[in-house]
Amino acid sequence: MTELNRDAIQAQLQTCTSKEATFKELVSLSKQLDRLTDAEKIEENKVKGCESAVWLIERQENGVCTFQADSDAKLMRGVLAVILSLANGHSKAELQAMDLAAELNEFNLSSYLTSSRTNGILGILKRIKS
């Protein structure tokens, strides 16, 4: 499984000074996200309310959560890579104590998190905490 390094991703996104640069960075990040198999892309793994299809799977080992996520849209896969870099490696209790939305805002992604996509992303964050 590809390790998603939060600090490296954040540093990379913060160098982006235009929407085009952020777009290209998200596309590049999307390639770091391990894809789910078709067997895993089932209805119960689907996060509702996203404009693109999003699937999220959770595994727990010794109290530590590891998430895998996928989408049919690349930009969303880039955003998912960012989210997983925040969420992976924490316990459920830690995740529930974290303000994931606020942390996500530190990634210079505001223009990709606005409008109708926001609801979808909040849905993903909610599912990660639950």
């Binding site: 929407k19 085009e20 952020t22 693109s52 049919d72 849209a73 690349k74 930009l75 969303m76 990709y112």
Partner: peptide, 21 residues
């Protein structure tokens, strides 16, 4: 093979407003 939201995202980054959906 390419999601319309991704196409839309790039068009928007170039100042082109269309509708994807």
């Amino acid at each position: 093979g390419i999601h319309t939201l991704d196409l839309n995202g790039y068009l928007d980054s170039q100042g082109v407003a269309v509708r994807a959906g």
